[in-house]
Nucleic acid binder design. Structure first.
Lengths: 215, 215
DNA sequence: CCGAATCCGCAGTGATACTG
DNA sequence: CAGTATCACTGCGGATTCGG
C-alpha cells in the first residue's frame, strides 16, 4: 500500500486517491470552466506551488482524468482539458460547492473570487423547470473578466471567457468589492447592471438561476 | 492565510478546507452509516494514525460537522455523530463514491471493504421510482458484519449494524472472498443467499437497489 | 513569455509508544 | 476505551532557475 492509497475497496476512497490530494479538485474546477494553459491555472489558483500543479496534472493525465494537448499554429502552446471521465466529476464538484457555499461567511481579507467559481456555481443554481424550452445565452462581465451561461433544451452550459456563440444579452456588473455570486445575482435582480442586447432576458436570468428553494 | 486555507471565496474551496484533509471524508462516511466510537473508527479505517483521527474529530467538532457525545449508563463511553450540517455532506460523499466506483478495478491485495461503504453505496443504488409506496426493511449479513436498508415513503435509510426496527427479511451472504457491492447484488439476484423472513422481498430488493440506468 | 524542473525548510502525516 | 506524546518522514509551500 503506497502512502496515498487507503487500502479500501471503496468508491469514495478511490475517488480521494485520484483527486483528493491538495489542490486536486480546485484544478478540476478550473478545467470544468474551460481548457486551461499551465499559466492560466497558476493565475487562477494563487498560492499553488508550481511543482504541485505540475505533479497533479501528470497524475490526472495518468489517471485519464485530464489530457495535455499541444495547440497548433495560432496561440501555440499547451492546454489541459478534462477527458469525458474527468467531466463526470462535475456532480461531485457541484455537491461539494453547494455544501461549502453554505459555510462561506463574508470574504476573508485577501480572498479572491475565481471566475471559474462563478461559472461553475451557475450550474448549481440552474433551475431546469424554470428554463422550460428556453434557448438563450448570457454573458456576464465583471472585474475585468467574463463568463457565460447558455441554456438550450433544458440544459445549461457555463464557462469562463466569451461564449461559444454570440450572447443574446451582455450584463456588465459594476465592481464595488469582491464579486461574490450573491452580489452578482442581487445586482442583476436589482437592475444595477449595464445591459446590452435583449434586455428582457435579464429578468429571465433571475428566474432561471436562483438558489434552490427549501424542500 | 494559514496553510490549510486556499485564499478563495469559493464554496468548493471552503468545503475542502473543512473536510478535504486526508482521511476527512472517510470519517464522514463512517459517521453517515452510524454514530461511532473512537475505536470503531480506528477499526474501520485501518492505517489511520490515532493522532490524525483525533485531530479530524476535533476539527469537525469545531466546525459544527460532528459532535462528541458522552454516552450515559449502558455502554458507557464516547460516541461521535454527525450534526445536521454534517449529514448534508451525504450528497457530496455519494457523488464522489459513484464517480470513484467507476474507477474501482478488482480489489487490490490487502484491500478491505468497510461495511459503511456497503451501507452508503446502497443509498446511491436506491431507485425511488421503483420503490413507489413500498415499506420494507432488509438486513444483510456478510463476513461477520451486518447492515440494513429501510425503505418507507419513497425514501431510504441505511446503516451499519442491526436495523432500528425488526427486519422483514434477513439475507445472509456466504463470503467467498471480499464482499464487494457487486458480488452482494449478484448473490441476491442469483438467490445464492440464505433468506429468513418474507422471502418474496428478495426480488423486491433487486428491483429497488440497482446501478443507475444509462441516460 | 510559457512550461516546467530543482532545491530547501517546514507542516501535516505515519507509526509507535504511552497514559488516564 | 479514548485518547496524548514523540519522532521520523514526505508532501507541500516558496523561491529560484532553466530550456523552448
Amino acid at each position: 500500500m503506497t502512502r496515498r492509497e487507503f487500502g479500501q475497496h471503496c468508491g469514495l476512497a478511490r475517488a480521494l486517491e485520484l483527486v483528493g490530494e491538495r489542490w486536486g479538485l480546485l484544478i478540476v474546477r478550473e478545467l470544468l470552466a474551460r481548457p486551461c494553459r499551465y499559466t492560466d491555472l497558476l493565475e487562477q489558483l494563487p498560492g499553488i506551488p508550481t511543482n504541485v500543479l505540475s505533479a497533479r496534472l501528470k497524475e490526472f493525465e495518468a489517471a485519464g482524468i485530464a489530457e495535455r494537448r499541444v495547440t497548433p499554429a495560432p496561440q501555440r502552446g499547451v492546454v489541459y482539458a478534462l477527458t469525458p471521465d474527468g467531466e463526470q466529476l462535475e456532480a461531485s464538484v457541484l455537491a461539494l460547492a453547494v455544501w461549502g457555499a453554505a459555510h462561506l461567511g463574508e470574504p476573508r481579507p485577501g480572498d479572491i473570487v475565481p471566475t471559474s467559481t462563478l461559472a461553475v456555481s451557475l450550474r448549481a443554481l440552474f433551475d431546469p423547470g424554470a428554463a422550460g424550452g428556453l434557448t438563450a445565452t448570457w454573458e456576464i462581465r465583471t472585474a475585468g473578466t467574463a463568463l457565460y451561461a447558455a441554456v438550450a433544451g433544458g440544459r445549461v452550459a457555463t464557462g469562463v471567457g466569451r461564449p461559444p456563440s454570440e450572447p443574446d444579452l451582455i450584463m456588465t456588473i459594476p465592481v464595488e468589492k469582491v464579486p461574490t455570486m450573491g452580489a452578482i445575482l442581487q445586482a442583476i435582480a436589482g437592475r444595477t447592471v449595464e445591459l446590452e442586447g435583449r434586455t428582457e432576458l435579464a429578468e429571465t436570468f433571475t428566474r432561471v438561476f436562483h438558489p434552490p428553494r427549501a424542500a
